[in-house]
């Protein structure tokens, strides 16, 4: 078995599932490493996809130690399955032009894993993705959107450059204070219902909080 660190890159441009699995199998046939890192580029992989990749690797006597990707979804999936995960910031020219076409002013997403604790301050010139809670006394801000895979109990400010389209999403939205662009709102008094991710955004000049549907995150 080859124990050197080997990086496999999955190429899936057309999101053709059968193809990427065959592609992966072919690569694994010749490798047999117990130290593989999968780079899934900008492809969104669910937990199920990742489990399948692990199974394929096991079948070919290989062991995967981690994933890297520029897709936050993939990172969240692999993190939640306990794999070492590295978020890669995408900056290929093709993507930038696409983003410009959509007329979005922010593209980069900063990824933070772990609880943001009282007195800590996290800031991003793009979007901010946090895997963990933002505790009371902590502050997070981003020029773009803020997505918190955890509880927001501190202060969050999205759209710091004045972008009033920015949103703040969290599994539990119970902030001390919310800011979007120049608007400020105090957090809701009552506890939100369990199991409902929520999103704050500006609607007719006011910050409103509503249940979050996953389709809203990426538009």
């Amino acid at each position: 078995m080859n124990s050197n660190n080997q990086k496999i890159i999955i190429n899936i441009d057309d999101r053709n599932y059968t193809n990427w699995k065959i592609d992966l199998k072919n690569k694994l046939k010749t490798l047999r490493s117990n130290n593989l890192e999968i780079d899934s580029k900008n492809i969104d992989l669910s937990c199920k996809d990742i489990s399948e990749i692990i199974e394929i690797a096991n079948h070919y006597d290989s062991k995967i130690i981690g994933f890297c990707s520029s897709s936050p979804k993939t990172i969240v999936s692999s993190q939640s399955l306990g794999y070492k995960s590295q978020f890669i910031i995408e900056n290929s020219s093709q993507n930038t032009s696409e983003i410009n076409k959509k007329n979005l002013t922010f593209a980069k997403t900063h990824f933070h894993q772990g609880t943001v604790r009282s007195g800590e301050y996290l800031e991003s010139p793009g979007n901010l993705l946090i895997l963990g809670d933002v505790n009371p006394g902590a502050k997070v801000s981003a020029e773009g959107n803020i997505i918190i895979w955890g509880k927001l109990l501190g202060i969050a400010h999205a759209g710091t450059n004045g972008n009033s389209k920015a949103t703040i999403s969290a599994l539990q939205l119970r902030p001390v204070q919310l800011r979007i662009a120049k608007k400020i709102a105090r957090g809701p008094k009552d506890k939100p219902k369990f199991g409902h991710a929520e999103q704050a955004k500006i609607d007719s000049e006011e910050i409103i909080i509503s249940p979050l549907f996953t389709t809203q995150v990426d538009d």
Binding site: G114, T115, R117, S118, G119, E120, N135, P136, G137
Partner: peptide
């Protein structure tokens, strides 16, 4: 108590 927990949280961040 809320204030004690808040301060503990700050310290935990530094310990980490």
């Amino acid at each position: 108590e809320v204030s004690a927990v808040r301060d503990a949280d700050r310290v935990i961040g530094l310990l980490n």
